[in-house]
Amino acid sequence: MRVLVVDDSPLVRNMVKKACLGSAFEVVGEARNGEEAVALYRELLPDIVTLDVTMPVKDGLSAAKEILAFDPHARILLLSAMGDEELLAEARTLGIMSSLQKPFTPQALLSALQDLSRG
């Protein structure tokens, strides 16, 4: 499964890449903000996107809205330090059904990716 990682922190992007090493998931692209995420999604057509919420230029939910307008079947894992009910409800309304609150363990990330890939 090809994964696009979207996070403004290079440390988090590296953590996702390391967690995916040797697994069924391959990181094929990295974006630092929502604008780059939308452009890279259109270019790479990944199977899964891990998406931070709080980012400069364009936030994660705005990016998700554009990605899902382009591809209503896009599989997005919200990977954020935020995890309140209002935010998750807004994400579900957009069509994001999976989320994992940071900080995460590699095991928790792979488990969330596996669940999303089956869904």
């Binding site: 922190s9 440390l11 988090v12 709080t54 954020s80 330090a81 935020m82 995890g83 309140d84 009910e85 209002e86 935010l87 609150q101 940071k102 900080p103």
Partner: peptide
Amino acid sequence: ASEFGNLVSGHALTSINN
């Protein structure tokens, strides 16, 4: 440090919003 600040504020605001 930035990511740590993001994690602390994210968890605090999650708790406050709930």
